[in-house]
Design a protein around this nucleic acid. Structure first.
Lengths: 106, 106
DNA sequence: AATTTGCGTAACCAAAAAGTTACCTATAAG
DNA sequence: CTTATAGGTAACTTTTTGGTTACGCAAATT
């Protein structure tokens, strides 16, 4: 399973990975614990984990033979920055509309 | 160019599409106007536009033989909802930490 | 009326992503 | 010390994505 290195946007493009992130927001989980919740093999989950790790969405802690995945903020920030840009665009548009309406009201 | 129907997350997974969205935040543009800014053929741009349209990121207005693309909020909202969920998760974590620190301070 | 321009569509191709099975290693448990 | 368990890695397959060229059509232009 050669796991490609994907960026933050590509990470959340996959529904399974999004679901894994939601699950990890509830509690840290091992590879097998994650795999139990998906209709895919453990190596497949392992690959997704590696992808999410490289993009900064999770951190990994090995405890004995178990590998715990924990949510990490870094990956999300990159997506949020992009969304924020457009959020400002829309609120800016809204402000222009308000100004226009206020002018007409006078 | 059979354009697949992709969801909001898949739309922003592509760097070219993200760039197109940023450009459209500055002004509405036609297919050719967009294509001039990319190292790809017009049909390729046309396909991206269709994908972004179907996922609710842009609206399309035909004026004569020209097709104007204008930014639309719907697509962004779906991504924002996802990001908001985790944003609440992090601020929740932060609050717990604050509470803990306050308790120790007393 | 003839030509140019803007854009869509079809058929096709190459690269990448997402999955599989088979096999190996290391830790934990009996 | 033997066995079971947790998980990584390799090799391979299928599907999807992102791109191309070739062509057609309708709206402008001349």
């Amino acid at each position: 399973m050669a796991a490609p290195i994907l960026d933050a946007f590509q990470v959340i493009a996959d529904p399974s990975r999004r679901q894994m992130l939601v699950m990890l927001s509830k509690k840290s989980m091992t590879i097998n614990a994650l795999a139990e919740n998906f209709d895919m093999s453990r190596p497949a989950v392992s690959k997704h984990v590696k992808i999410m790790y490289h993009a900064g969405f999770i951190s990994i802690t090995d405890i004995g033979r178990e590998r715990y995945c924990t949510l990490k903020q870094d990956g999300f920030n990159k997506v949020q920055d992009f969304i924020d840009y457009f959020d400002k665009f829309w609120t800016g548009k809204l402000k222009k509309l308000e100004t226009l309406l206020n002018m007409k009201a006078q």
